[in-house]
Amino acid sequence: MAPWARVTQRLFQIVQIIGLATGGRLGVRVTDRLGIQTTRQTILRRIMALPLEPVEKVPQIGIDDFAFRRGRKFGSILVDLQTHKVLEVLPDRAAKTAAAWMAEHPELEIISRDRGGDYAAAVRKAAPQATEVADRFHLYKNLTEAVEIRKQAEESARKEVPQEVQDALATSKKAFSPRTWKPVPAPRDEQERLARREQRFDRYQQVLALKAQ
């Protein structure tokens, strides 16, 4: 036992192993069956007590914020974009905290982040050599906004079209129904279709020749 400890080192490690395998709530169910008196908070503290692996050279990272307490306390999480492993959890989302971590890694080449100003300032200060890219969520968000803007522009332009043009467009839509319209096949697909047709025709000619014999 360690000084002032209430559990043995072996029991401490057992709770850690159960916590890593199951988590907090499920871990309590397992420890109850084993006769170990503990709580889910204790299991999580045992997991947090594990030492982190040292961060070696990492050329690509992603950084984003999360809430320790929703709406009150926020932190930052850094992830290796190549291995998808968590590198560090920062106590806040301030620019100086993120910049201090980035300054220790001059090998950074790509940094994926959100559109917040704090992380942008941290990159400019501590990693100006790195290329900044938007994360996947904001790429989707930008795409959605671009589509909505395009749709609104088309609707506003459609309202300005004269009535006779709208009638002509409506007539053309009736003539060419989406149910009967077929897209133009790709050149490669068309070549493959013609090659299969040629093979079938050759086989048919062979059948006729054999029948004549």
Rank of each mutant, 00 (worst) to 15 (best):
Ala2Trp: 15
Val7Ile: 13
Leu11Ile: 13
Ile18Leu: 10
Gly24Phe: 00
Arg29His: 14
Leu34Arg: 06
Thr38Ile: 04
Thr39Glu: 03
Arg40Ile: 07
Gln41His: 12
Thr42Trp: 13
Thr42Val: 08
Thr42Lys: 04
Ile43Leu: 04
Arg46Cys: 08
Met48Lys: 10
Ala49Trp: 06
Pro51Trp: 01
Val58Leu: 03
Val58Asp: 03
Pro59Tyr: 13
Ile61Pro: 00
Ile61Asn: 01
Asp64Ser: 03
Asp65Cys: 09
Phe66Glu: 07
Phe66Tyr: 03
Arg70Tyr: 09
Ser76Pro: 07
Asp80Lys: 11
Gln82Cys: 13
Val86Tyr: 08
Val86Gly: 06
Leu87Thr: 01
Asp92Tyr: 01
Lys96Cys: 09
Lys96Val: 14
Met102Thr: 00
Ala103Cys: 09
Glu104Gly: 15
His105Leu: 04
Glu107Thr: 01
Asp114Trp: 04
Asp118Gln: 12
Tyr119Ile: 07
Tyr119Met: 06
Ala121Asp: 09
Ala121Ser: 08
Arg124His: 12
Lys125Asn: 04
Pro128Thr: 03
Glu132Ser: 07
Glu132Arg: 12
Val133His: 03
Asp135Gly: 03
Arg136Cys: 05
His138Pro: 06
Thr144His: 11
Glu145Cys: 02
Glu145Ile: 03
Ala146Tyr: 07
Gln152Gly: 00
Ala153Ile: 05
Glu154Met: 15
Ala157Trp: 06
Ala157Tyr: 00
Ala170Lys: 04
Thr171Cys: 08
Thr171Ala: 13
Pro178Val: 05
Val184Trp: 14
Val184Met: 12
Pro185Asp: 06
Gln191Asn: 09
Gln191His: 05
Arg193Gly: 02
Glu198Ile: 12
Arg200Met: 13
Asp202Thr: 09
Tyr204Cys: 15
Leu208Glu: 11
